[in-house]
């Protein structure tokens, strides 16, 4: 697969604040590309530059050999965007919103009718198409927003946190729709701060933090980055501050934290750790309920890379 998007040394500054700091990456045609990162990491700013909405301070972004800065109008005819917020006309009905967007894409009345009927059906809004969009629920709005973005049947679809603020059911349906579109050949750039979601639908993931790319790769590749860091969960009958302090002093322990009913340990290597730990607790006279390994998650990767929790 060829690269459909090429970003080179892209930087965006807002005054003194650098939102996107010299990033370079490429996105292949036909993949679901995940942009992962906490709020303020620079994901949306990057998307806005790619979708020609803001101008880069320096660097280039090229979509299908068109520069976003100089050939914006060409790019706009092949992309679709599901923005972070609703971004449609709350006074218009779903049907009117879709017709308007369709007309701005230069579609004929027949094309608009056919396309909007299909899309409203796909996003299950056919029965509500003549209702004022402003009165829709959050999930319905987001589905309508997706339908609007698909009016031109774009080659590349940018989705900026499409599931944020939705109920679990709506999230699942949004993800399934995304996968379906991808299956039809659409390249999808998917922004989220939900690790689980990224892991489930994205082919490749790029983690952004503080305007920089922290890591890139498939979910498996990313997890391998922390392969030498193992997490062990220990459940004791009584957990004291003293015992945690003692644990931290052990040479093979990287960190020890009290989370809920458990102690979470990060250790170097796997060999003999169980034995060493049970020996340690036995000597300290602590009653152990359970000791077990935990498989690494993207969240672990993220915390390792950014030293902060995702939803902060």
């Amino acid at each position: 697969m060829k690269n459909i998007i090429e970003i080179k040394n892209l930087t965006k500054k807002f005054g003194n604040f650098t939102a996107v700091n010299n990033i370079s990456l490429s996105i292949k045609e036909g993949e679901i590309f995940g942009f992962l990162g906490p709020n303020g990491a620079g994901k949306t700013t990057t998307i806005n530059m790619l979708t020609t909405l803001i101008r880069p301070t320096s660097g280039t972004a090229v979509i299908d050999n068109n520069d976003t800065f100089t050939q914006g109008s060409r790019i706009r005819s092949i992309i679709g965007v599901v923005p972070q917020s609703f971004s449609l006309f709350p006074e218009l009905t779903a049907q009117e919103n879709l017709s308007y967007i369709g007309r701005l894409y230069g579609l004929t009345a027949a094309q608009i009718n056919e396309r909007s009927e299909y899309l409203l059906n796909t996003v299950s809004l056919s029965e509500h198409k003549d209702r004022i969009a402003g009165n829709y629920s959050g999930g319905m709005k987001q589905r309508l927003s997706l339908a609007a973005s698909l009016m031109s049947n774009p080659r590349i679809l940018f989705m900026d946190e499409p599931t944020t603020g939705l109920d679990p059911q709506s999230r699942i349906s949004m993800r399934e729709l995304t996968k379906l579109l991808n299956k039809q050949g659409m390249t999808i750039v998917y922004t989220t701060h939900d690790m689980d979601e990224a892991e489930k639908i994205c082919d490749t993931i790029t983690i952004m933090d503080n305007g920089r790319i922290a890591a890139s790769g498939t979910s498996e590749e990313l997890k391998r980055m922390i392969a030498d860091h193992h997490t062990i969960e220990v459940e004791l009958e009584v957990i004291t501050k003293e015992i945690i302090a003692e644990l931290k002093k052990l040479p093979y322990v990287i960190s020890a934290e009290h989370t809920g009913e458990l102690i979470e340990l990060k250790v170097k290597g796997r060999e003999g750790v169980f034995y060493k730990l049970s020996d340690f607790f036995h000597r300290k006279n602590e009653k152990v309920v359970e000791i077990k390994f935990r498989e690494p998650t993207l969240e672990d990767v993220f915390i390792h890379l950014t030293k902060k929790d995702l939803r902060d």
Partner: peptide
């Protein structure tokens, strides 16, 4: 909840045919 039309009904598959054609034609603004 959205019904994901993947295959099944002949109507849907007909729609699939006409709608899964990705637009890669540049429009001159």
């Amino acid at each position: 909840m959205p019904r994901i039309i993947t295959k099944k009904s002949p109507e849907a598959s007909h729609n699939q045919v006409s709608h899964n054609r990705i637009n890669n034609i540049y429009e001159q603004e």
